[in-house]
Design a protein around this nucleic acid. Structure first.
Lengths: 146, 146
DNA sequence: TCAATTTACGTTGCGCACAATCGAATTGTG
DNA sequence: CACAATTCGATTGTGCGCAACGTAAATTGA
């Protein structure tokens, strides 16, 4: 047992990377990344969204999202259009290919749920709740001014 | 509550990034990154280590470690030396500046422990154990052949 | 002994993640 | 209305994280 294995931060870091790697493999046939998958999940559920709202939900800024969305647009899974009312806003929508992915990728949640090794939904929810508390608490100590 | 907030993977991803951001702020005065800090923790505890062992402990390959260690060497916190017995191996050691950081950064673990918002060591250990199980389980489903 | 394989590390290329900065559009205020 | 402040998104630059590939050294084994 190495010293880093006794640290909460390293446990988080390892688990997060292991999970991302699992998604990366499952998504490889579509050449999608984990973060791109998260964008698809939001758009499947909520429909067209402005970039700003995607950023709020995923806690990502335009420095990450702009090139990521450009790549998704290049693959023709989404389209970006300036808003008619407020042309600062860019609305992101699914194309028909992007919508079709919803069925193609429907097997993934179960694969990941199984991959976590968590015994049941109750255990999964307990972990999620615990992680949400850590996230919230951590966000308070970094840049407390914002 | 957005759809992504119901996913274990996103809870992990968020908590990990929030924690990394907290470290980044604490480490900013020394221009160290979170991953560089992890290398220091290992070297403080275990002394000189070959690159391969650092990689095993942190689950990072040479594609990540080589440039990271080069930057740490540029800042004169570590030195890299080819092994005398087996010249494929590169041994990583702390410089006196690197050793001095141990005292300078001694306040960080308590700051982070506090920042997690976890009530006590027992809760922290329970979370670590839970995350280790997830990591191990996830590693099994990705590249099961290796 | 020496050719084939394995090991250790480095490099390249790509995609985030994030800070900093910019330009354009909108909003708020006098 | 004019103009300052704010909002939104894109761009630039740095540092991981990781796959793929390359090189040199060590080990294996016929």
């Amino acid at each position: 047992m190495a010293i880093v294995d006794e640290m909460v931060c390293f446990a988080l870091y390892s688990a997060s990377r292991a999970t991302t790697r699992a998604y990366t493999e499952l998504l490889a046939p579509w050449k999608l990344t984990y973060t791109q998958y998260l964008v698809l999940v939001i758009l499947w559920t909520e429909g067209t969204k402005p970039v700003r709202e995607l950023g709020e939900m995923l806690q990502l800024d335009s420095g990450t999202l702009s090139p990521l969305l450009r790549r998704m647009e290049d693959k023709e899974f989404i389209v970006r259009e300036r808003d008619g009312q407020d042309s600062r806003i860019v609305n992101v929508s699914l194309t028909s290919s992007g919508n079709a992915l919803r069925q193609d990728l429907a097997h993934i949640p179960a694969q990941i749920a199984c991959g976590t090794g968590l015994p049941d939904l109750k255990a999964a929810q307990a972990l999620i709740d615990s992680l949400h508390r850590v996230t919230e608490s951590m966000q308070k100590i970094s840049s407390p001014g914002t």
